[in-house]
C-alpha cells in the first residue's frame, strides 16, 4: 500500500497541565473522507490548528505528500494544497463576498506585488471566485459585504474561500455548525461531489452527515485517539459508545 497523503506521528500539545493533544498518530489517505468526532473540548480544533500550521505542536511530526512539514507555517502549507476552514468564522468583513473568495484565488494566481490595476477588474480572479461561490450555493450574494451575511451564509463563504485555494487536502472544522437544514443538505451533497478531487478531514458533530460521508472515522477523547476504523466498526465499538455516542443519544 502507498504512503498516506497525511501522516501524523506522535503529536503532543499541552496547555499547562491539560494534554490537549496526547500522542496522536493517524493517517489520511488520498481520496478519502476521514472524519474526526469527539465530545466538546476533546481537542479537535487544536489538532486541526497544528495540522494547518497555525499552532506549533510541542512534539511529534506531520508528514504531507511524503514531506516533513512540521516546521512550515500556514502560508507554506496552503501553497502545498493543505487548506482549512475555521470553526469560528474568519472572514474579511468589509470585503464583498466575491472579494473574499477572489483574494484567495489571487493568492495562488500570479504576484500580488502589483500596484496599479484595480484588482476588481481582473476577470480571471472573479470568474474562478464565482465558480467557488456557485459550488457552495452563494452566487446570489456575491456583491454583498461579507460582514452583513447571515450566520449560515458565512459558513458557506468560509467553505468557498477554502475551495478557492485549490486544496488537495481540506481540513474542515465543523462546516455544518450553524447552517440551516437546507444549507446543510446542500453542503453534504457538495462534499460528496468534491470527494473525487479533494481529500477531506472532516470534524463534525452531525452524526448523520458523518456516517453518510466518511470512509473512516477517528474518535478523539481527551486529546487521544480512542478508536479508528470504518463508520460501522466505530459505531459498534463499545468504548466509543460509552465515551461518546452514548452521551449523544441520551442528550
Amino acid at each position: 500500500m502507498t504512503d498516506a497523503l497525511l501522516q501524523v506521528r506522535n503529536l503532543r500539545k499541552t496547555y499547562g497541565a491539560l494534554k490537549v493533544t496526547n500522542d496522536v498518530s493517524l493517517d489520511v489517505h488520498e481520496g478519502e473522507i476521514h472524519a474526526i468526532i469527539g465530545p466538546n473540548g476533546a481537542g479537535k480544533t487544536t489538532l486541526i490548528s497544528q495540522l494547518s500550521g497555525q499552532l506549533r505542536p510541542d512534539s511529534g511530526t506531520v508528514i504531507y505528500t511524503g514531506q516533513d512539514i512540521t516546521a512550515l507555517d500556514m502560508a507554506a502549507r496552503v501553497r502545498m494544497g493543505l487548506a482549512r476552514s475555521f470553526q469560528l468564522t474568519t472572514l474579511l468583513p468589509s470585503f464583498t463576498v466575491l472579494e473574499n473568495v477572489a483574494v484567495a484565488v489571487q493568492a495562488r494566481e500570479g504576484s500580488s506585488f502589483r500596484f496599479f490595476r484595480p484588482a476588481s477588474t481582473e476577470r480571471a480572479l472573479n470568474d474562478q471566485a464565482m465558480e467557488c461561490l456557485n459550488d457552495v450555493g452563494l452566487s446570489g450574494t456575491a456583491s454583498r459585504l461579507a460582514g452583513a451575511l447571515s450566520h449560515g451564509e458565512k459558513r458557506q463563504l468560509e467553505l468557498a474561500i477554502a475551495l478557492a485555494t485549490r486544496p488537495r487536502l481540506l481540513l474542515l472544522d465543523e462546516p455544518l455548525a450553524g447552517t440551516g437544514h437546507e444549507e446543510a443538505a446542500q453542503l453534504v451533497d457538495l462534499f460528496g461531489r468534491l470527494k473525487s478531487r479533494v481529500t477531506m478531514m472532516l470534524i463534525e458533530h452531525d452524526m448523520n452527515a458523518v456516517f453518510a460521508l466518511a470512509d473512516r472515522v477517528s474518535v478523539l477523547v481527551y486529546g487521544e485517539i480512542a478508536a479508528c476504523g470504518t463508520p460501522d466498526a466505530v459505531r459498534n465499538d463499545a468504548k466509543v459508545r460509552a465515551a461518546y455516542l452514548g452521551e449523544e443519544e441520551v442528550a
Binding site: L92, S94, T165
Partner: peptide, 15 residues
C-alpha cells in the same frame, strides 16, 4: 486591507 481585516484569514489562504 485584507490583512487589516484579519491576518489569520490571509495566512489561511496562503499570504
Amino acid at each position: 486591507t485584507g490583512t487589516r481585516e484579519s491576518a489569520l484569514r490571509m495566512q489561511a489562504i496562503g499570504f
